[in-house]
Amino acid sequence: MVMPDTLAFKTARIVDIFQETAEIRSYFLSLEEEEDFQFTPGQFNMLGLPGVEEAAISFSSLAQPGNNFFMHTIACVGNVTSLIERMEIDGKLLIRGPFGYGWPTEEIVGKDILLVAGGVGLAPLRPFLLYCLEKRNQINNLYLVYGARTPEEMVFQKDLMDWQKKEEISTIYCVDKLPEYSSLLPNVGLVTHFLEDLQIDLSRALVCMCGPEIMMRFVARKLLLQGYSEKDLYLAMERRMRCGTGHCGHCQIGAKFVCQDGPIFQYPDIKPFADTML
């Protein structure tokens, strides 16, 4: 068997750019050479440009069969992302991917699904949420609890409003501070305050969370206290990555390579290791 090479670069063209918040943008991209580009919710690409190396960024869109479009939602805070921030439509990015294991799409049948996201952490969860909506008739209840510091810092505002209106999904949005007017009408408080009183049967629960590690720490602990089982919790881990292919060593958490064994982990697989906030 010929194993994939580490240097399989692809060129992606920026098709469209949406400003999500002051420092977060979504980039709608299409591959130049390939007609069909498939990936699963939760996977990521190494996005790069000559001169600034690469950064690992999750897909924030759901792959569509037979086309080569995909979306990344990027907080412009590092070398790569700040340079991408300055790019315009038709600009070209050098990417490698898709890498990693995504959300448990095989596990959703008959489940009560709870998605918990914080800040830009909604981006890696969005494709899974869209996937759940597509397969809505196969699952039981579907919840999204999404928190951000302020309503302005919430990403995918249009989606958030759509989902708020939909019957297929129950949403709880919350912020630390509420301004006088907000179209989303979010609650005030941390996501951990809104995890009770959900119609979730613990025997068929599936929780997927993505956000700051400190948020995931308390969400996981709160849910475990409420009687959720450890194996039903899935978390998205973020670590520094230089290769995406399990070689550079930067993303290791104990015995796990976040790039290859993750970035989505079942809680018991990642909990035993040191150097996380979980």
Binding site: P50, G51, V52, E53, E54, R242, C243, H247, C248, G249, H250
Partner: peptide, 16 residues
């Protein structure tokens, strides 16, 4: 086996 990656760009910015 850990490594870091660094880009070295030519002065005319065409080669990296």
């Amino acid at each position: 086996f850990c490594f870091n990656v660094k880009d070295k760009i030519s002065f005319d910015l065409k080669e990296c």
